[in-house]
Design a protein around this nucleic acid. Structure first.
Lengths: 236, 236
DNA sequence: ATATAGTGTGTGTAAATTACACCATTGAAT
DNA sequence: ATTCAATGGTGTAATTTACACACACTATAT
């Protein structure tokens, strides 16, 4: 059945690439669309920017409306402006990404009818996505990789208390390569912004590892005068 | 005298931060505006995107119309979408940057009446710019700095034949810090994509340095299989 | 209760990279 | 001819990175 669609001109939209980390796997948030075009397809959460909101505000609103997630720290990473990227007309989209702890989150519940549901999907073996969203995801993943090297973003994906092995496996999942355990530990600990706790891991059937947490105050104290973390912030 | 201006909604524009290198100094391209708002102010070259052109195409066209420069390899780096960044209405602008050899270029000649003239200005001690262009410049400069570390962009700023000292002083100008001469040479040469020429510098009143050129074929050959140049591509 | 297999924790050393300081060469000025 | 100013060009010590194995803990089988 062919559906007749309206066309429109000069529209800004936002698309979101939201990363989470769960069970040693890196995942992103997808929605199932409930609207033409690409009805029933999987897609990144995304929608149109209003006249009276900044694009940053729009990104937060849209993510909330499509997935129920709020208060993420989202950052734009690229703008996609091919003429025919949207079948209904000229839509330029600004892509944002954010990181989140999956465990701490409740259900994902779209609050508009534009999405049927929202769910996490491993970044490996993603299905085809609506529009040019596969390309948007790929670009976002590359940016994430780069940023991991100079910003303390990993801690936004992990639970508050984590082991060094968990931290390392996150780095490995994002960078898609094995890292050296000794050096990773040495380097991470040498920064001084990881706080060693008295607790140990529980419920594991092997030697329990020490738990750590990220001390943001120390982090900003250490790096407040440094413009450039290229040497200090790099792991791997 | 107050000028009455039209207002408009939902407009995309492009702004360009074009870097050049001349006499050991890093410079950017500015225009003097010939149109309200901000008539007579200095600004980045920028204008509105048409309906039927991709933003990448628009960037090239707009730069050409305002400065006469063509065929630069421009890359977007950030999109600015505050509601009130433009006094006449909602304008979201995608900022692009590019690099160019100043020497090789002829006169700068705007081909529309929107700019009175276009000229190079050192990045140090920039005057106040129209709109939020000072912020756009600053963001672009930071991106340039980062990209210098993992892409061979320096060679786009230098003449075809250059000395290692020139290359180093460009890195120093962009990164705004002194680098170690020995390591810089060792590292640059170790990559293997610099071709040593039989020629030497001419017209200098001191010991003439060897000339080199960038061998892009070797570069792509060397790095074709590497996703990630973090270790190899880093200088400094 | 004891032995054993399995898995993750946690550490030392050699190789490679980076930081640093000096002498050499040339042309211009006197 | 001598000195000065400017840049070219190289060796060594300090730091960072790469790499492999012994030990601790748990679960399971006997």
């Amino acid at each position: 059945m062919e559906v007749k669609l309206p066309t429109f001109n000069s529209v800004f939209s936002i698309d979101c690439v939201i990363f989470g980390f769960e069970a040693g796997e890196l995942k992103i948030l997808l929605i199932e669309r409930n609207e033409e075009p690409y009805k029933d397809w999987l897609a990144l959460p995304g929608y149109i920017v209003e006249q009276d909101e900044s694009i940053d505000d729009a990104a937060e609103r849209i993510l909330y409306e499509l997935t129920g997630l709020r208060d993420l720290h989202m950052q734009q990473f690229h703008t996609f402006g091919e003429v025919n990227r949207h079948p209904q007309g000229r839509v330029i989209t600004v892509a944002y990404y954010a990181l989140i702890r999956i465990n701490g989150q409740k259900d994902l519940r779209p609050v508009t009818q534009y999405a049927k549901k929202a769910f996490w999907h491993p970044v490996n073996e993603l299905p085809k996505l609506a529009f040019d969203h596969s390309e948007i995801f790929k670009t976002g993943f590359n940016k994430l990789r780069r940023r991991l090297n100079y910003q303390p973003i990993a801690f936004e994906l992990l639970p508050e208390k984590f082991t060094l092995t968990q931290l390392q496996s996150l780095y490995e999942a994002v960078l898609n390569k094995k890292l050296d355990k000794r050096n990773f530990r040495k380097k991470m600990l040498s920064y001084g912004f990881l706080k060693e706790l008295d607790e140990k891991q529980k419920g594991v059937s092997y030697r329990a590892a020490k738990l750590y947490k990220f001390d943001r105050r120390k982090y900003t104290k250490i790096f407040q005068n440094e413009l450039n973390l290229e040497n200090k912030g790099k792991v791997g």
